[in-house]
């Protein structure tokens, strides 16, 4: 029994290390892009330390890059909306890793796509706990170190458009959305949101077209247009597969 437990534990740790190292490397892209979007090195690192949610962080720097600090409200709103899925992960993780206050606060901070996915892939409670904490810890360390390295590189590179880093930011968003486009409903939402954002860009201040595009998700989500007739239990929708991004 104890052998089985420890082998589960080891399997969870192995998965954590593999996912953690792979994901941490994206932090380099983030750090470089954040600096070229106008943040300084310290601000870039603080953003990774405090926010610790890749999609939301890329949203902040993407909107700052196009609209500057004048688009601050839109940057905050977009990153917050992109973080709503973390609340779902947290609901899922609460019985697994919740506990006393200090532990719950740390668990909340480390509740991201990868820690949830690795944890959910384990079969025993012990493995699920190990998967969550190990993945959270490895990615927190790796993501923040990589952010610093990326910020230093971005600082050396200087002028953005000359090097094509604005295109790199677009590619980063494409990489983040790619593993989520596996069925008709998310694909339709992506296309609809893209059209709304393109049409509204000339009409609204920078940042707002992105927020307006979020309404496409609300409308399709409420009506379940193109969705499965027999809706999946919510948890199955959280399954990220092996190539889920932060």
């Amino acid at each position: 029994m104890s052998t089985a437990r420890s082998s589960q534990h080891k399997a969870a740790i192995r998965a954590s290390v593999a996912v953690g190292i792979a994901v941490s490397a994206y932090g380099i892209s983030f750090g470089a892009l954040a600096v070229t979007a106008g943040l300084d090195i310290v601000q870039t690192c603080v953003l990774s330390l405090l926010m610790f949610s890749g999609g939301s962080q890329f949203a902040v720097i993407g909107i700052l890059a196009s609209g500057g600090t004048a688009a601050g409200v839109a940057a905050i709103a977009s990153s917050t909306l992109l973080g709503t899925r973390n609340a779902l992960y947290a609901i899922r993780m609460a019985p697994v890793v919740g506990g006393r206050w200090p532990r719950t606060l740390l668990a909340a901070h480390w509740t991201i796509d990868e820690s949830t996915a690795v944890s959910a892939a384990q079969t025993t409670p012990e493995g699920q706990r190990a998967g969550f904490w190990w993945t959270g810890a490895i990615i927190y360390l790796g993501w923040n170190l990589a952010t610093l390295i990326g910020a230093l590189i971005g600082n050396l590179l200087g002028d953005v458009s000359q090097y094509g880093l604005d295109a790199a930011a677009a590619a980063a968003f494409l990489g983040l959305i790619w593993p989520r486009l596996k069925s008709m409903q998310p694909i339709a939402v992506a296309v609809g949101a893209a059209v709304v954002a393109a049409l509204l860009t000339p009409a609204l201040p920078p940042g707002l077209p992105v927020l307006a595009a979020a309404l496409v998700a609300v409308v399709v989500g409420l009506t379940n247009w193109l969705g499965p007739k027999d809706p999946l239990p919510a948890m199955q929708q959280l399954d990220l597969g092996e190539d889920g991004f932060p």
Partner: peptide, 19 residues
């Protein structure tokens, strides 16, 4: 759950276009 998941997709798609 559905709205939260689709929200991620919608925002990322809009960010791709803007970027």
């Amino acid at each position: 759950a559905r709205i939260a998941n689709l929200m991620t997709v919608a925002l990322l798609a809009a960010l791709i276009v803007v970027q």
